[in-house]
Computed example of a mutant assay.
Amino acid sequence: MSETVSISTLSGEGAFDAYVARPAGDPKAAIVVIQEIFGVNAGIRRKCDRLAEDGYLAIAPDLFWRLEPGVELDPDIEPEFQTALELMGKFNQDAGIRDIEAAIKYVRGMSQSGKVGAVGYCLGGRLAFMTAARTDVDASVGYYAVGVDNLLREQHAIAHPLMLHVPTADGFVGPDVQKAMHDALDPNPKVTLHDYEGLDHGFATEFGKRRDEDAANLADSRTATFFAKHLA
């Protein structure tokens, strides 16, 4: 079952929508699904639906609501891709993290374990790292996170497990950035990095030309095992 809910900001001065997918029975745990730069589109909703099929309550907050509520863009359509880049340039990431924290608070206690995870993609992968460092989330996963090299100073604040999926041919995350990530994070016992040799950004998208079926399935299986362990 799916629905759209309204969540109050932490300050109580506004509210934003979120897509929620619920499992057939009592949820094992809750997972916040953090959007790409394309908004809460069909692919992100499908991510939520798949998590619900696996027994989780999944929620995807509309993080662009301050710029333009209800954004849904297709990365395979060039004008929409450019619009997404413009939105990312205007997006206030600190405010976005506070909205993710509001979503975490909204769903905490709605499941058997009471635990909440987060999984994000692209911009959402970066935000998943920030969520791990700045909130009380119980476990986080980032797919092809961008700009993590600029956040490494925050790794000391990561209190719960974090997994990052890193495609080695990511056009948005070059070899130097990947090396900085490994150098800084490999020694951190809270963080696990998985490399995907020769793959590009967006390989685990649900729809469109970016998807690599085998790698997406491998990454998703690792994510499923990770959440099963840390959200029980």
Score class of each variant (00 low, 15 high):
162 L>S: 03
9 T>Q: 08
21 A>P: 12
150 N>S: 14
98 R>G: 05
224 A>S: 08
149 D>L: 03
67 L>V: 00
206 E>L: 10
18 A>K: 05
42 A>R: 13
39 G>K: 00
126 R>G: 15
84 A>M: 05
108 R>E: 02
34 I>F: 09
187 P>Q: 09
195 D>W: 01
109 G>A: 04
141 V>T: 04
121 Y>H: 11
23 P>G: 07
26 D>V: 13
125 G>P: 14
66 R>M: 09
93 Q>T: 09
132 A>G: 12
2 S>G: 03
181 M>A: 09
79 P>L: 12
183 D>H: 14
109 G>Y: 11
189 P>D: 14
88 M>E: 14
176 D>E: 15
175 P>C: 08
94 D>I: 06
79 P>Y: 08
166 V>M: 15
56 Y>T: 00
102 A>F: 07
126 R>P: 13
221 S>W: 01
184 A>E: 13
153 R>V: 01
108 R>H: 04
40 V>S: 10
226 F>Q: 01
186 D>E: 13
72 E>R: 11
219 A>D: 00
196 Y>N: 01
162 L>N: 02
97 I>F: 08
36 E>V: 09
36 E>Y: 10
133 A>G: 04
31 I>Q: 02
149 D>F: 03
58 A>T: 00
36 E>H: 05
135 T>S: 15
59 I>V: 15
204 A>Y: 01
147 G>T: 03
162 L>K: 01
165 H>N: 09
4 T>P: 10
3 E>P: 06
102 A>R: 07
221 S>K: 08
109 G>Q: 08
116 V>T: 07
84 A>T: 02
184 A>P: 12
65 W>M: 02
69 P>G: 06
67 L>D: 00
75 P>L: 07
199 L>R: 05
81 F>W: 02
135 T>P: 15
219 A>Q: 00
6 S>I: 05
114 G>I: 06
46 R>W: 06
99 D>L: 12
223 T>H: 02
177 V>L: 11
221 S>A: 15
82 Q>E: 12
96 G>N: 02
122 C>K: 06
154 E>S: 04
92 N>G: 06
142 G>M: 10
215 A>I: 01
46 R>V: 02
147 G>Q: 10
102 A>D: 03
113 S>G: 12
16 F>A: 04
51 L>Y: 11
91 F>S: 01
